[in-house]
Structures are given as C-alpha cells and as structure tokens.
C-alpha cells in the first residue's frame, strides 16, 4: 500500500479514537517491554484506549514511523495529537503531567 494511503489510515484511526496506542502486540499481550510499560500506565490510570498492533502489518509498522517522524514503537496519541513513546509516557506519568493532559482533553474522569 502506498505511504500516503497508510498515512490516511493512521490519521483516520487517531481521529476516530480519543486515545490510540500503536504498539507491538495487543494490549492483553504486549510483545515488547516498551509497549508493555505504556499499556501498564494506561491501565493503571483506567484509560480506555484503542490498541493497534504494528506487528500485524509491516506497512503500518513503517508508516507510523514516517507519519510521526518518530523512529520507534510504541507511539501514544491523544485526541489526534502525538504524546510520545515509552520514556515520555513514563516521565509524564511520574510527574502527573499525563493525568493532567488526559483531564484537559476530557479523556480521564477525575477519581
């Protein structure tokens, strides 16, 4: 599939779900420690998210890297905006910034 078509598919995915995680494996069975870390944070916060397994689609695996201009997986999107990968999600979570971002975007219901 042409890169432009893949990018259109990615755009549609991140626009149609509040929280999207491009990851290796699926949320119930991550295939990579970095992806697993992000799933754990989101699960801990009780955030519902749409998981996309890039291992199931080589075009998508390459396409998401060029779409974001980001060379690694996982990649977290909230309301269509790129948040970051594993390090950034962990740091933001530890600093309380991820919770604040999710609240700002109307995603996380205050406990």
């Amino acid at each position: 599939m042409a890169e432009a078509d893949i990018h259109a598919r990615i755009k549609q995915t991140i626009d149609s779900h509040d929280v999207v995680l491009f990851m290796k494996g699926v949320a119930d069975q991550p295939q990579c420690g970095f992806s697993q870390m992000v799933v754990r944070v989101l699960d801990h916060l009780g955030v519902e998210f749409h998981d996309v397994n890039v291992l199931a689609d080589p075009d998508l695996r390459d396409g998401v890297k060029t779409f974001t201009q980001w060379p690694t997986i996982p990649q977290l999107y909230v309301k269509g905006e790129f948040v970051g990968g594993c390090d950034i999600v962990r740091e933001m979570f530890q600093a309380g910034e991820l919770q604040a971002l999710l609240k700002d975007k109307g995603v996380l219901v205050a406990a």
Partner: peptide, 23 residues
Amino acid sequence: RVARQRMVNDALHAEFATGLHAL
C-alpha cells in the same frame, strides 16, 4: 520532551537506518 527526543533521533538517523532498534 518530544522536541528533546526528536533532537536525539535526528542526530542518530543513520544509526536507526542501520539496525539501531530501541533507544
């Protein structure tokens, strides 16, 4: 945070292109 990591990723573009898998 994203801008900082982009600076590093950009500097290491050649390494990602030749098998650097995780950073």
